[in-house]
Design a protein around this nucleic acid. Structure first.
Lengths: 331, 331
DNA sequence: CTGTTAGCGCTTTCAA
DNA sequence: TTGAAAGCGCTAACAG
C-alpha cells in the first residue's frame, strides 16, 4: 500500500508538500498540486487513517450505540444518522447493545479505544460506571430516544405525549370506551412518558379509567403478550387495544388471537405506537402513531456536531404523525 | 487521557514493560504485572487504538457493507456477525450502501482508509473499479448473500434452490395449480436463483407452467406491486401468490388488495421467501421460507477470519426452514 | 525478565 | 511556497 512518502517521491516534492496538497491546504503552488495529485492517482494512494488520527488527535468518527439494531426504529434511525454524518465528513460506527447493559459497556470501551469524536447513545437504562467515565472524559455525547436520570446531555427523541394524544383522539373518534393499554417498562423514559400521557389523557377522551385495563410489558413481544393475558384474565373485554410500541402490539395481538380466536380477535381494533407496513393487511387494519426515526437520527447528528464544535445545542422532540387505517378513513 | 507512559511512570517500570503487561505477553514478572495493572486501573487507561493500529499494521476491525440496513434480513445478519466477531476479538464496522453503487464505493474508500483487516460484502450488482482495486490490494473479502461475476471470493448465502423447493412442496400440498410468481431482478444472483428454481420445479409439483403467471419486480414493494398488477391485467386469477422476498410479498399483497378488494384478496393464499412475524395475523395467514440470516452472518465472519489467518475457506449455502401457517398445519 | 530505542504514516511547526 | 524534522502513542527488536 502506497504511503505519502511514495507519493512525494513520485511527484518530486517533500512529504510536507504532498501532505499539504492532499489535505487541501491553500499554501501550495498549482504546479506541485498538479504533480502530487497525479502521483497519488497513479499509485492509488489512500491515506492511512490510523496514522492521521494519531497525529491529529481526532478520528472524524462518531459512535452510534443503539439498543437493538433489529428494531426497525433503530435501523431507520441509524441509516439516516449515517447519511447526515457522511454529509459532514464524518463516519458513523454503528454498534448494537442488544438490550443488554454489559454489551453496552463493552461497546463503550471499544469506542473509547477507537477515540471516536462523539457519541450518539440510545441508553439501555440507568448509568453505569463506564458511561460515567466517558461523561467525565468530556467526550461529546447526545442521547437518542431515551433519557437517563442525572445525565444532562441533549436528548433527541419522539414527542411521546403528542403521539399518545393522536392515538387518544383516534380512539375517541372511533367511539371506544373500553380500551386496553399495554405499556413498556417504567424504567425507560419512553415507557414512562407514554404511560403517563395515556393515563392523564384518557378521561378527557371518553375512555374508561378502569385500571384493570392497563398493564405493562417489556417492550418486547413476549412480555407484552403476558401483559395482555393478565388483562383478559381479569375479565376485561376491551373493544380496542393500544400497544405502546411495535413489538408490544405484536405480542398483544398474539395473545388476543390465542386466547379468543381469530374470529373474536377481529372484533377488536388495535392501535400502535410505531408503524409497520403490514398493519394495512390485518383484519381489521391497524392504525398507528408513526415515529419519525430518520429525523431523530439526523437531529441527533446535527446536535452532536454542534457539541463537537463547541456549541450548546438544545434537546429536541420530534413530532409523530398518525396513520389512520380504520374503515372509512380517508386514504 | 492517560497514555502508556503515564501508566509506566505510575507503576515505576519502563514503557516496554507496561506494554508487555497490557498486551498479555507472558514475559512479565508477577510483580510488574500487578503494579502495571493497578496503575492502569487507577488512571482509567484505555489504549489508543489508532496508535496501536499504526504500529501493528492491523486494526482488528472488519468492515461489513450491506445493501440496506433497514431490511430485516440484513439487520439480523449484522447483529449476528457482530456477536461472532466480538467473540474473536474483532470489531465490526457496519456501513450501509442503501442499494446504491455510488454509496457503496464511498464506503469502500472509508474502509480502505481505516485499514480494515477484512471485508464482508453484500454486493449491489456488478463489479466497480473501486472494488477491483480492493480485490487487487489483497484485502481478505467474503461475499454475503449475493455473488458477483468474476469474483472468486467465498460466498455465504441462502440455499435459494432449497427454499424454493420448500415453497413448491407447500403449494402442492395445498393443492394450488394457478400460482403467480413475483421474482426479483435477474441481475441479483438471489433473484436469478429463485426464479430459475421456481421455473424448473413447478411442473413436478402440479403447478401451471403458464408464463402469464410469472413476472418480476425489483425486490422492493413498489416494483413488486407493479409486477402483480401486470399479472392481473393479463387476466390471470391465481389462487396463490409466491413472493420472492419479503418486500415483494408486501407489494404483491398491496396490489391484490387494491385491485380486488379485501374480500377477494382473502381467497388468495400468499407464500413468501423471507418470514415476517406479522404473517401470522394476515387473513389467511401467510406461510414463508425463513432465511437463516444470523447463521449466514456468523458463517461469513468465520470464513473471513479463516481467510485472514491464511486459510482457504469454502463457500457455504445456509439451509432455510419453512413456516407453515396454513389452516390445519400443525403448530 | 526489563529498559532503551527505532519507527509505523502522517501533520505541523519552524526556517529558509 | 517549500523542505526538514519533530512527534502523536504504541509495539517490537535488541541488548543487557
Amino acid at each position: 500500500m502506497a504511503t505519502i512518502k511514495d507519493v512525494a517521491a513520485r511527484a518530486g516534492v517533500a512529504v510536507g508538500t504532498a501532505s499539504r496538497v492532499l489535505s487541501g491546504s491553500p499554501q501550495t503552488s498549482p504546479d506541485s498540486r498538479r504533480r502530487v495529485l497525479a502521483a497519488a492517482a497513479d499509485l492509488g494512494y489512500i491515506a492511512n487513517g490510523p496514522a492521521r488520527s494519531l497525529r491529529r488527535a481526532r478520528t472524524d468518527v462518531l459512535g452510534l450505540l443503539v439498543s437493538d439494531i433489529r428494531n426497525p426504529f433503530f435501523s431507520e434511525l441509524a441509516h439516516a444518522a449515517e447519511q447526515e454524518a457522511r454529509a459532514h465528513g464524518y463516519t458513523v460506527v454503528l454498534a448494537n447493545a442488544n438490550e443488554d447493559a454489559a454489551q453496552a459497556d463493552a461497546v463503550l470501551d471499544v469506542f473509547a479505544a477507537q477515540r471516536i469524536d462523539g457519541l450518539l447513545l440510545s441508553p439501555q437504562g440507568p448509568r453505569t460506571p463506564r458511561l460515567d467515565a466517558l461523561l467525565a472524559s468530556n467526550l461529546p455525547i447526545v442521547l437518542l430516544n431515551r433519557s437517563i436520570d442525572g445525565v444532562d446531555a441533549p436528548l433527541y427523541g419522539t414527542d411521546n405525549a403528542g403521539g399518545v394524544a393522536q392515538a387518544l383522539a383516534w380512539l375517541q373518534r372511533r367511539g371506544h370506551r373500553d380500551v386496553a393499554f399495554i405499556g413498556g417498562p417504567e424504567s425507560f423514559s419512553t415507557g414512562a412518558e407514554r404511560h403517563d400521557a395515556y393515563l392523564a389523557g384518557r378521561a378527557a377522551h371518553g375512555i374508561s379509567t378502569d385500571d384493570l385495563l392497563v398493564d405493562a410489558g417489556d417492550f418486547l413481544a413476549d412480555g407484552a403478550a403476558e401483559a395482555m393475558l393478565r388483562i383478559l384474565d381479569r375479565g376485561a373485554l376491551p373493544t380496542a387495544v393500544f400497544g405502546a410500541n411495535g413489538q408490544t402490539t405484536l405480542g398483544a395481538m398474539r395473545a388476543v388471537h390465542e386466547r379468543l380466536g381469530a374470529e373474536a380477535a377481529s372484533l377488536i381494533e388495535f392501535v400502535s405506537f410505531d408503524d409497520v407496513e403490514w398493519f394495512a393487511f390485518m383484519s381489521p387494519p391497524v392504525s398507528a402513531v408513526r415515529n419519525d426515526a430518520p429525523e431523530i437520527g439526523r437531529a441527533g447528528v446535527r446536535g452532536l456536531l454542534e457539541l463537537i464544535g463547541g456549541g450548546t445545542p438544545g434537546s429536541q422532540r420530534i413530532a409523530t404523525s398518525f396513520v389512520d387505517r380504520s374503515e372509512g378513513a380517508a386514504s
